[in-house]
């Protein structure tokens, strides 16, 4: 089984200047945990994940916690942080090294890659262009389907 057999081809993407609030809406609407950030040529230049959004500027540092005597932010402070975060752009918070594979990459190898890197998805590229994404859900779907019904000739 290869990446191209299980990948999702309609990839939800964002651009460098997509506001953070739009990215959050995309993640929630499509029930995904990350979006690739692409340039005009549809080349992946980064990724924004749920973890990036939860982390960025929202969590008090240990020092801040000590300073606040272990108290968490009050609701006004939290609302202020959230407001700031919503106004930022993809480029401000994205991780700029995304992990990519080719269309003929083996699925078991992709599974290893996801586990080793602690990531939830890899992007599939042809040349430099984004053509798909393989998430853990895609791997499970591929496994649940494979071997059921007819066997394909190799």
């Amino acid at each position: 089984m290869e990446a191209k057999g299980i990948m999702t081809r309609d990839v939800i993407v964002a651009k460098r200047d997509t506001p953070v609030s739009d990215i959050i809406h995309l993640l929630l609407k499509h029930r995904i945990s990350g979006v690739p950030i692409v340039n005009e040529e549809n080349e992946v230049i980064g990724v924004v994940t749920e973890a990036d959004l939860i982390q960025k500027k929202k969590l008090p540092t240990p020092l801040e916690l000590i300073y606040n005597l272990g108290r968490y932010m009050n609701s006004e402070q939290l609302a202020e942080e959230h407001k700031k975060l919503r106004g930022e752009k993809a480029a401000d918070i994205m991780t700029s090294n995304a992990i990519c594979v080719k269309e003929d990459s083996d699925v078991v190898k992709i599974a290893s890659l996801l586990i080793k890197k602690g990531i939830k998805r890899v992007f599939v590229t042809r040349g430099k262009k984004l053509v798909g994404v393989v998430s853990k859900a895609d791997i499970l779907r591929g496994m649940a389907k494979s071997g059921e019904g007819s066997t394909r000739a190799s």
């Binding site: 089984m1 083996d106 699925v107 078991v108 190898k109 599974a111 290893s112 996801l114 586990i115 853990k136 859900a137 791997i139 499970l140 496994m143 494979s146 066997t151 190799s154």
Partner: peptide, 22 residues
């Protein structure tokens, strides 16, 4: 979690590919 399942698949499946030993 799906991670537990993918981990299970990765550890249980033969390292050779699907096509090599179907």
């Amino acid at each position: 979690s799906e991670s537990d399942l993918v981990y299970k698949l990765e550890t249980m499946l033969p390292t050779t590919s699907y096509w090599a030993d179907r």
